[in-house]
Amino acid sequence: MNVIEKNIIMEVEDLKKHFDISKGFIKKVNSKVRAVDGLNFQVYKGETLGIVGESGCGKSTTGQLMLGLLDATEGHIYFQDRDLAEMTQEELRLARRDLQVIFQDPYSSLNPRMTVEELIGEPLIVHGIAKGEELKKQVLDLMNLVGLQKHQMTRFPHEFSGGQRQRIGIARALALKPKVIVCDEAVSALDVSIQAQILNLLKKLQKELDLTYIFIAHGLPAVRHISDRIGVMYLGKMVEMADRDEIFHHPLHPYTHALLDSVPIPDPRLRKEHLLIEGEIPSPTNPPSGCAFHPRCPFATEHCKKVTPEYREILPEHYVACHYPLVDKDTDVLPHSSDKA
């Protein structure tokens, strides 16, 4: 999507979410998990913003905060210029129609005792949008939209395969004609051939219904396929955000560089030594001082241990939080077309 009109549909400002860990009988709070620790970014209307990162980086918490499912500890989330935290219950209820979610595991997120018709119709009933014949018609339209057959209406979730169940989940998310859909690991649990079907479906729906996606995932190839822009998170912070091709061809943060380089490429001719980063992801309860990535970073200096790098726009539309971004370095991890003999 080259010609996006950059209308901001959502904006996140200094967003923080800390979870208290309490222990013992009196539930004394003795530590905090800094799941999300100061995020700033915008989501443009009609785009797909990919958010990637490894376990514990806070990507799913970010998604839940943006849906209004969790309350932020600090900071603001604006949806169409309105702060979610300042909305009344009624306003929030209406905003939630516009903000929907597709979960990773369509088996545990669908009630096993409800038929497809009831599952897809439920949001319409809850929000008082349709009933009777009209309800049935709308459910059929939705099923048609996501590629489910009319005769499957009376079936239960266990009668479907993983891919089909994900279609039910998508139909449910679409029922209220949302503007933004958070896809939280929406294709991660699916087999590759099915994953391709669902990714294609999501792209088709985005075009037809003018949707904005926030695509949260750890699977980089899928994120690259579907996203227009990509943000990379590490220990509750955004370390880099840029246009998809920019991220893959010119990553500026050493973590992004190593993360992208770690992805195995399905071509034996491109077998290579990976740029390994040492160690494991530290616990978000007690993140390292300064730049949280410094213990694993090959370029870290004393400065990095002490001073937290500022998240700033160092190239147009390219944001990085690093004291020594890899500007002017060849960080392209992707094989060039000439490499393939």
Partner: peptide
């Protein structure tokens, strides 16, 4: 062939992925 074509490639972005219809 279908399996190979349906993986999103990090180095070769296509508009629509090839997908094997149906399920196992």
């Amino acid at each position: 062939k279908g399996l190979m074509a349906s993986i999103p490639k990090v180095h070769d972005v296509v508009d629509e992925l090839y997908s094997i219809e149906g399920t196992v």
